[in-house]
């Protein structure tokens, strides 16, 4: 915080820092930022919800980010996402009730050259095969 100089324009930087440290941004953090940077509460909330990169909920133990960029979509990530949604009965952006898996989507990972791409626990998997991807996630969850 001190590094950011307590200036109102540091809000987005500060939100990044909170998310990086805690994995998500909770209400207390928002209140703290509002006070420290002297920005109205509603404005802090408005900014935090405008940017989809910020998450207000804790993530699951494992995360799976399906790329929904054009190239990946053309090559079948829509199907990968569908399969996962059905298998775990959650929608993109949600976490399974047991906190095991968070299913997320991204707007292009910049890995179109190896489409379709999915990021499983931080590792980019290129040329993902729609037919066998569920099994791969299942394996991960067992670990």
């Amino acid at each position: 915080m001190r590094r950011l100089g307590y200036k109102p324009h540091a809000l987005i930087e500060a939100l990044h820092t909170v998310q990086e440290t805690f994995g998500y941004i909770d209400e207390d953090a928002l209140k703290y930022l509002s006070r420290a940077l002297r920005i109205p509460l509603s404005q802090v909330y408005g900014v935090a919800t405008f940017y989809h990169y910020f998450s207000m909920k804790p993530q699951g133990k494992h995360t799976c980010v399906v790329c929904m960029g054009t190239a990946c979509y053309i090559k079948g990530t829509g199907q990968i996402l569908n399969n996962l949604e059905n298998a775990y009965s959650i929608k993109a952006g949600e976490t399974t009730p047991d906190g095991g898996l968070s299913l997320l989507t991204a707007r292009c990972l910049g890995a179109c050259g190896i489409a379709p791409a999915v990021v499983l626990d931080g590792v980019v998997i290129g040329h993902a095969d729609p037919a066998h991807f569920n099994a791969r996630v299942e394996e991960k969850l067992k670990q």
């Binding site: 928002l30 509460l41 509603s42 404005q43 909330y45 408005g46 919800t49 405008f50």
Partner: peptide, 21 residues
């Protein structure tokens, strides 16, 4: 000068929010 209201979210899902929603 109270800034109780702001907009949250974006697109057609944006809504008026009071403080921290």
């Amino acid at each position: 000068g109270a800034h109780t209201w702001d907009l949250m979210g974006r697109g057609d899902a944006s809504q008026i929010v009071c403080d921290l929603n």
